[in-house]
Simulated scan of single mutants.
Amino acid sequence: MGKIAFLFAGQGSQYAGMGKDLYENVPEVQSLFDNAEGERPGTLSQMFEGTEEELKKTENTQPCLFLVDLACAMALEKNGIKPDVVAGFSLGEVAAMASSKALSNEDAFKLVCKRGQLMQKASESIDGVMIAVMRMDKEELVQLCSEYGVYPVNFNCPGQIVVSGEAERIEKLKETLTEKKVRFVQLAVGGAFHTPYMKGASDGLKEELASEKLYNINKPYIFLYANKTAKPYPDNREGMVETLTDQISNSVKWEETLANMAEDGVDTFIECGPGKTLSGFVKRTVPEARIFNVCDLDSLKLTMEGMTK
C-alpha cells in the first residue's frame, strides 16, 4: 500500500448542519468546537443552523468550514487512519497546516478568522464572481480571460478551470462561453478570490503573521503541499508565511498538486470536510487512486470499511 493523503475542502462546500453529528459523538471534536465557540461566539449556531446566505459570507464561511475540515481529520486519526501528506484547497490549506502541526489548532482557528475578515473586506470593494468552466481548451480559455479582463485562478483537474473577476466582466465571458456551447457553473462564494483584487487581504494576513509572539509556526511533521507552488511547503518561517499569504491572491494549482502527490507515492486520497468536490478532482486527475471522503459519521464508517479492504 502506498501513502495516504488528507485533502481539506475549500469554500463553496459549506451547508447548514455540517459537523453536528461529529460534535455530538466525538469528544475531541466537541472540545475543538467548544474552544472555537469561546474564541468566536456564534460559530456553532452558524455551522449547525445558519442560512445559506449567512454561511456564504466569507467571514463566516472560513472559520466554520475550517472546523469541520479539521474535525473530519481528527475523527479519522482517532480511528487509526493517519496521513503521510496533506493539502487543502484554498481555505482548506489552513486546516492542512493544523493537521500537519505547522500551526496549533488554536492558532489556526485564530488565523482563519482573521483571513476570513480580511478577504470579506477585500471582496466588498468589488462585485466579484467565480465560475467553473468545463471541458474547454486551457490555452483558449486563458486567452479569453485576458481579453475580458478576468482571471483563470483554480486549475482544479483536467477539464475544469475556475475563472474569477468582476461580475460585469464575468457576465460578458459567460455570454461568449454560451455561444461556444461551453458549460460553466457559478460557485457559492462571496468574492473574486485568488485574484489581484485580494492583494490587500494577502498583505494584511502577512502583517498579522509578522510577529512570532502572535503565531507559533513550526515545520510540518509531514509533507504539506502548497496551493501556490503545488510542492511541499518550505521549512523556514519566512518562506511558510510568504507561501500561505501569497496564496490568497494567486492561482490554486490543484491538478498539479494531485499529480505531484501521486508521483511521490500517494495512492489513497481522503477528502476531509463537506461535499465530494475534491474527490471528483482526484478521480479525474489520478484515476487509478483509491478515493474516500469524510464529512459525517456515516461517511466516516464507509471510509473505515473501505480502508480495510
Rank of each mutant, 00 (worst) to 15 (best):
S211D: 15
K180Y: 09
S251L: 12
G191M: 02
D246N: 14
G165F: 10
N154W: 14
V266H: 00
K276F: 12
F223M: 05
G275K: 11
V153Y: 03
V162S: 07
V286S: 02
G273H: 11
E179C: 02
Q186C: 01
K199H: 02
L244Y: 01
G165I: 07
T243A: 12
L205Q: 00
D246V: 07
M198H: 05
T268E: 00
A192D: 00
A192T: 07
A188C: 05
N156R: 01
G165M: 11
E208T: 14
A262F: 08
N227L: 07
D203M: 13
H194I: 11
S249E: 04
D246S: 13
L278S: 07
D235C: 10
F193G: 00
V266T: 12
A226V: 04
E238R: 06
R284N: 15
G239S: 09
T245I: 02
I217A: 01
A230G: 02
V286E: 06
N218L: 09
T257M: 05
I222H: 00
E271I: 05
S251D: 13
K276W: 05
T176Q: 15
F193I: 14
N154Q: 14
D246C: 06
E242S: 13
Q160S: 03
N156A: 04
T229N: 01
D203N: 09
G191S: 06
E256G: 00
I248G: 00
V282I: 15
Y151C: 15
T243V: 15
L187A: 03
E208N: 06
L187I: 06
D264Q: 11
F281A: 04
P232C: 10
K180C: 08
Y197G: 11
L224K: 04
K181V: 09
D203I: 03
K219C: 06
E263S: 15
K174C: 06
N156K: 08
V241F: 08
Y197F: 11
F193H: 04
D235W: 10
N236I: 14
T229W: 06
N154L: 10
A210I: 00
A192P: 09
E175F: 07
F184G: 09
V150K: 09
P220M: 14
T243N: 15
P232E: 04
F281K: 00
V150L: 07
R284D: 14
K180G: 00
Y197K: 06
P234I: 11
Q186N: 08
T277C: 02
Q186P: 00
D235S: 13
D264L: 06
V163E: 03
Q247L: 12
G149D: 09
E166L: 10
P274M: 08
I161K: 04
E179D: 09
F223V: 03
G239Q: 05
E256S: 07
I270Q: 12
M261V: 15
S202C: 14
Q186R: 12
L244E: 00
C272T: 10
E166V: 03
E238I: 13
L209C: 14
R183K: 12
G159K: 14
V182C: 02
A192L: 11
L278F: 10
T243C: 14
H194E: 13
P287G: 03
T243S: 08
N218G: 01
K283Q: 10
Y151D: 10
K231D: 03
N218D: 03
T243Q: 10
N250Q: 10
L258V: 01
A167P: 09
T176K: 15
K174A: 02
G239D: 13
L278M: 11
K283E: 14
C272G: 06
P232Y: 00
C272K: 14
L205M: 13
